[in-house]
C-alpha cells in the first residue's frame, strides 16, 4: 500500500496572495463587461447620429424650398406674371371668338345670298331651257304662259304679238282674261302701244291692282324684242293673291322673257311657216310628178 503524499502546509502569505489574485481577476471581468456595454452604446449613438444627420439635411432642403416658395416678392411677381398672361390669353381668345363670330355671320349671309342667287339662276335656267325646248309655236306660247303663272306668279295677263300688216298688237294667249274681249292695240297708243313703240319695260308704281281689270291700266308691260325690234308685248294685270311684291328674280325674268321669248316665238313661227311651205311644195311636186 502506497503511502499518500503528504499535503504541504500553506502559509498565511500564500493564502493572502491567492485572494488578491482572485479579486484582481474579478475586477478585470467587471471592467471588460462595462467596456463592452460602453462599446455597444457608442455604436448605437453613432447610428442615431447618422439618422439625425440625414434628417437634418432633409429638413434643411425642405426649409429651403419653403423659403423660396414663401418669399413674398417672388411669389407675387410670379402670380402677377401669370395673371397678365391669363389676361392676355383671354383677350386673344375674345378677339378670336369675335373674329370667328364675324366670319360665321359673313358665311351665313353669304350662304343666304348664294342660295338666293342659286334660286334665281334655277328659275332663269329653266325658263330659258323651256323656251328653247321646242319649235312648235303653240307649245312656245304655252311655255310662256307657264313661266308667267308659275315663276312670276301672275293671275291675269295677256300675250300680244305684232301684226305686221295692220301694225297692231293682237292677243294670241291670255290667262284670267277673255282673249275675245281684248281689243287690238295700235302701236304708239296707250301704255301698251307706247311700250311696243319704245321697247322699254313699264312697271306701274302703284302695286295694288284695281277691283276690276282695266285694259289701259296694266301692272307690267314687257316688250318682246329681237335686237331693237319689238315683236310683241306681255301685259300683266294682276298677280296671285300670295304674291304681294316683285322679287329680284322677277325683273331678271322680265329681261329674259323680253329676249328669249321673242326669239323662241320668232323661230317657232319661221319653222311653222317653213314647214307649211315645205308641205305645199311637196303637194305641188306630187301633183306634177303624178
Amino acid at each position: 500500500m502506497e503511502k499518500p503524499e503528504a499535503e504541504i502546509p500553506q502559509t498565511p502569505d500564500d493564502r493572502a496572495e491567492k485572494e488578491e489574485e482572485s479579486k484582481v481577476s474579478q475586477r478585470a471581468q467587471e471592467f471588460l463587461q462595462v467596456f463592452k456595454k460602453g462599446a455597444e452604446f457608442t455604436q448605437e449613438l453613432l447610428r442615431i447620429n447618422e439618422k439625425l444627420r440625414y434628417r437634418v439635411v432633409r429638413l434643411e432642403e425642405e426649409n429651403n424650398d419653403f423659403r423660396r416658395a414663401m418669399q413674398p416678392e417672388t411669389a407675387i411677381q410670379d402670380l402677377e406674371r401669370r395673371i397678365q398672361e391669363l389676361v392676355r390669353e383671354k383677350e386673344e381668345l375674345r378677339e378670336k371668338y369675335a373674329n370667328i363670330e364675324q366670319e360665321n355671320q359673313d358665311f351665313a349671309q353669304r350662304y343666304v345670298e348664294i342660295e338666293e342667287e342659286n334660286n334665281n339662276l334655277a328659275n332663269l335656267y329653266i325658263a330659258s331651257y323651256q323656251l328653247h325646248s321646242t319649235l312648235d309655236y303653240r307649245e312656245v306660247l304655252q311655255i310662256i304662259l307657264e313661266i308667267v303663272i308659275n315663276l312670276i306668279g301672275a293671275e291675269e295677263f295677256v300675250l300680244l304679238l305684232r301684226d305686221e300688216k295692220k301694225d297692231k298688237l293682237l292677243v294670241v294667249a291670255a290667262e284670267g282674261i277673255s282673249q275675245d274681249d281684248f281689243p287690238a292695240v295700235t302701236i304708239g297708243e296707250g301704255i301698251i302701244g307706247k311700250v311696243a313703240e319704245t321697247g322699254e319695260n313699264y312697271i306701274r308704281k302703284d302695286f295694288a291692282s284695281p277691283e276690276k281689270t282695266e285694259i289701259n291700266n296694266p301692272l307690267v308691260c314687257i316688250p318682246l324684242k329681237i335686237k331693237e325690234y319689238v315683236i310683241g308685248v306681255i301685259v300683266l294685270y294682276r298677280l296671285l293673291r300670295q304674291k304681294t311684291q316683285f322679287a329680284e328674280v322677277d325683273y331678271e325674268l322680265f329681261t329674259l322673257l323680253a329676249g328669249h321669248a321673242a326669239t323662241a316665238i320668232f323661230s317657232s313661227r319661221l319653222y311653222s311657216e317653213s314647214e307649211r311651205r315645205l308641205s305645199t311644195f311637196r303637194g305641188f311636186i306630187d301633183l306634177l310628178t303624178r
Binding site: N123, Q130, E146
Partner: peptide, 12 residues
C-alpha cells in the same frame, strides 16, 4: 301638269 314646273321641282 306644267312641264316647266316639273323641271323646276326636279331641279330643286
Amino acid at each position: 301638269d306644267s312641264p316647266t314646273m316639273r323641271q323646276f321641282i326636279c331641279f330643286a
